[in-house]
Design a protein around this nucleic acid. Structure first.
Lengths: 345, 345
DNA sequence: GTGAAAGCGCTAACAC
DNA sequence: GTGTTAGCGCTTTCAC
């Protein structure tokens, strides 16, 4: 049999199309007995509303778009990062019967703006979750905003009262990690910075500085090297740090890939971790628990952040009040085996 | 200004709606000069067809659904597996201006059939790519088929002339790996099987048997242990194998997670890899290149397989002829450091 | 609390 | 080659 339509249901239930629509959309103003009649008819006919028709009539879709930079376009790791975001967004979508459209793209693509507005105007998602580092590229943000599609930025680096965003406390948690390292007796704590275009990652460096200050340690320029989030840059920076005569006793890297690289370099140089060197990262990628020694790091609540982001989008259109433009979900320290007391020296 | 519609374009170009539709859909039977007029009007108005309206009128969407078991619902690894599938499917979608809808789900969910038919009847994707092991669960396949949505199964385990499918040569490539190990002088090659519900993984065991035979080695039941694709099962099986008096000199595991576990166990038991023991896996997860020693394994062309799957779906509706129901894309050996010559004994 | 009528912006079928 | 006419199956608006 051909698929049942709303008319079929209305006929079978002996009510109007509109009443069926009310029941399906859980609108008020339907007598309980009517509702039951309609629900029975729906069940009998195995009726499912046609989403395309709803979309057209209501001028909106039940689609959330998740747009992120696709690291594997040029680099392998961080699949876990993407999966976490997808999972969080999906949780929010499922609850509200929305579907998720994913759109990985390359942040170095010059006509990214055009690519995204085409996506948006064709698929017309009800809202967009935009992940860092794209969320701090003004061109990209503006291209999306020009379509008037509701937008939530993930970890945009700095709060912006104009835009909805969900972030974590990069700076504070990095200060905490630094204080933790200091509390273990470390005096020379090195920091490997991340990719400069990623503002939230830049905040991690600020947190390191805060932590040093709060622990009464003095900052040394020599202890800060610039990485770019890649494993390879982590190797280069760690080698520089560890081949010095007065090497640091702790290395804090702005992400796990670089921290893992530090572990690898230490191993090659015969430096015991954590006996002679403590190493900490940021992200809590799955490798952090698989590597030996397991990596002390910071767990970014990415899944919950993206769930929150999608929820903001979905609620926005339900006129639920959005309390604040910027939501912060705290990260947490994951203390494992790669950090330990500083050895006397 | 409000968004331009096809009528606006038709008016500006001085043609009918239908002609605009022809141009937009690249249909034939439009005079070149007319086409140009229309294209200019489209550009002037920045017209973008409303996908919702097209969907409703044409009774189909430009959406491909990718349905897979979500391993991270209960286990962390294999994010790379998912990402690879997504990337392949996306490549095919982009070319044809389709969008990708992802739907991870839990294969142990009892009303998966209901969940999927709801998804399908609401979003009405033009086609579904169904990944293993879901693609060899008859209930799931039937639920999807009952919606009459075109379906392509990924690695369904066995060819089925009724259904479109894309697979790799699990069996042949595993025979090749086994012959390779034999060619290194190994006589006692152990095999750790994978999860029994995953038919394609079962084919890997058959390939192992083929390889033994082709190499003139005799099969021994004692050398085959049953894992379930998890790291933990790999640990258990490897320990059993390696604590024997006459331990195998090579272990071939049906997936990388279990092979990595074997490396870990060997390390703990003080067994040198590959000096005393060769280890091979299947999948080529990213950890395979990060672990020490790097893992010899088999690269499954998952990204190309899923691209092919989506392409079949997209072409099907264009009446392009689908030559065969079942497409096979060959896997390849990735020889790394975990395998080497058998030591005399 | 319920219903009738009017579209949403396209594509399909067919006429010219 | 091009245009006309009907819907697609809902939601919206407004009347009752």
């Amino acid at each position: 049999m051909p698929k049942a339509t709303i008319d079929d249901v209305a006929n079978l239930a002996g009510v109007s199309m509109k009443t069926v629509s009310r029941v399906v959309n859980k609108e008020p103003n339907v007598r309980e007995s009517t509702r039951i009649k309609v629900e029975e008819a729906i069940a009998r006919l195995n009726y499912r509303p046609n989403q395309s028709a709803r979309n057209l009539a209501s001028q909106r879709t039940r689609l959330i778009g998740l747009i992120y930079d696709d690291p594997s376009a040029y680099e392998i790791p961080s699949a876990g990062y993407v999966i976490n975001m997808q999972q969080g967004t999906l949780r929010a979508c499922r609850k509200a019967h929305y579907e998720l459209l994913i759109h990985p793209c390359n942040y170095r693509n010059n006509n990214l703006g055009e690519e995204l507005s085409e996506l948006i105007e064709q698929a017309r998602p009800a809202g967009i979750v935009l992940a860092a580092p794209l969320s701090n590229m003004p061109k990209v943000v503006k291209a999306i905003e020009s379509t008037k599609t509701p937008l939530v930025c993930l970890s945009p680096g700095k709060a912006d009262s104009q835009r909805l965003s969900v972030a974590t406390n990069d700076r504070e948690i990095c200060a905490e990690m630094t204080r933790y390292l200091a509390s273990l007796g470390h005096k020379r704590i090195a920091f490997i910075t991340g990719h400069p275009s990623h503002k939230a990652v830049a905040n991690r460096y600020l947190g390191y500085l805060d932590g040093l200050r709060q622990s009464g340690l003095k900052f040394s320029e020599r202890l800060v090297l610039n990485g770019d989030n890649s494993f390879d840059s982590g190797v280069i920076c760690s080698e520089k740090l560890l081949k010095r005569k007065r090497a640091p006793t702790a290395i804090f890297a702005a992400n796990d890939d670089m921290a893992v690289a530090a572990i690898r370099v230490a191993d090659q140089l015969g430096i015991d971790v954590p006996g002679q060197l403590s190493i900490a990262g940021f992200d809590d990628i799955s490798l952090a628990r698989q590597i030996f020694p397991t990596l002390t790091t910071i767990r970014q609540p990415l899944s919950r952040m993206s769930e929150q982001a999608a929820t903001l989008l979905i609620n926005e259109r339900n006129d639920k009040v959005v309390a604040a433009n910027s939501v912060t979900i705290p990260a947490s320290l994951q203390i494992r085996d790669s950090t330990g007391p500083a050895r006397d020296q």
